[in-house]
Amino acid sequence: MRNDPHPIPGGESLLFLTDDQIRRGIEAMYFAYRAFTADPDLILEEIGYGRAHHRALHFITRDPGLTVTALLEVLGVTKQSLNRVLRTLIEDGLVDSRVGRRDRRERQLHLTEKGVALERRLSEAQRARVRAAYRAAGPQAVAGFRQVLEAMMDGEMLAQFRALREAPDQRLAPRRAGSAG
């Protein structure tokens, strides 16, 4: 992030943001999030699912074999809430829950072919939207955007995000010895 008081495009200074400028930034995030979720929401609505189903599919795709415990930590939801989502995804043949290979108490999650196809359909429009926005904004803006997003995360979330980014083949959330998934 720049540390100089020179104006950025639009005449706004980075060091002395007014409440109105902050509010506009928050509103921009709300509208961007609406746009980002609009296409998947239409698909989810067709099949009676919500965003929690999409998030679960996303992270299971990202890390096949992810345990229920790790998914709970990544999503930051209650066990009851996640169980409802997973039960639906398993019953509908989108997710396969297998006994852990190292710890039989763990449940490892994998997408079925049907689950892979749905996740791909849900995320295609989002990837295209993000790709187009990144290209339009340019590399410096993308780097700045990532810095802003990371600066908004608390320490634990940031560590989780960085671990995911830096070791994409590693599990999403740290495993605690003796924890069942």
Results as ranks from 00 to 15, higher is better:
residue 70 A to L: 02
residue 117 A to I: 11
residue 66 L to A: 09
residue 104 R to L: 14
residue 111 L to R: 06
residue 127 R to P: 01
residue 65 G to F: 00
residue 105 R to Q: 07
residue 74 V to T: 13
residue 131 R to K: 06
residue 101 R to D: 11
residue 130 V to F: 09
residue 53 H to D: 14
residue 66 L to E: 09
residue 131 R to C: 00
residue 85 V to G: 04
residue 119 E to D: 10
residue 77 V to H: 10
residue 57 L to W: 01
residue 131 R to S: 13
residue 66 L to H: 01
residue 51 R to K: 13
residue 112 T to D: 03
residue 115 G to I: 05
residue 88 T to E: 15
residue 106 E to D: 15
residue 80 Q to E: 15
residue 124 E to F: 02
residue 97 S to A: 15
residue 55 R to F: 14
residue 109 L to M: 01
residue 73 E to C: 05
residue 62 R to L: 11
residue 76 G to Y: 06
residue 76 G to Q: 04
residue 52 A to Q: 13
residue 120 R to E: 12
residue 102 R to T: 10
residue 70 A to N: 06
residue 116 V to E: 15
residue 86 L to G: 03
residue 99 V to N: 04
residue 103 D to P: 02
residue 62 R to M: 03
residue 76 G to S: 04
residue 93 G to C: 11
residue 116 V to W: 09
residue 124 E to H: 07
residue 75 L to W: 09
residue 102 R to S: 12
residue 129 R to C: 00
residue 91 E to K: 11
residue 54 H to N: 13
residue 103 D to Q: 09
residue 58 H to K: 12
residue 123 S to E: 11
residue 73 E to M: 08
residue 71 L to Q: 04
residue 80 Q to S: 14
residue 69 T to I: 00
residue 102 R to L: 11
residue 120 R to P: 00
residue 84 R to N: 13
residue 54 H to M: 15
residue 58 H to S: 10
residue 105 R to V: 00
residue 127 R to Y: 13
residue 126 Q to Y: 01
residue 125 A to H: 05
residue 103 D to R: 14
residue 76 G to C: 09
residue 105 R to N: 06
residue 117 A to E: 14
residue 94 L to C: 07
residue 73 E to P: 00
residue 103 D to C: 03
residue 65 G to N: 03
residue 120 R to A: 10
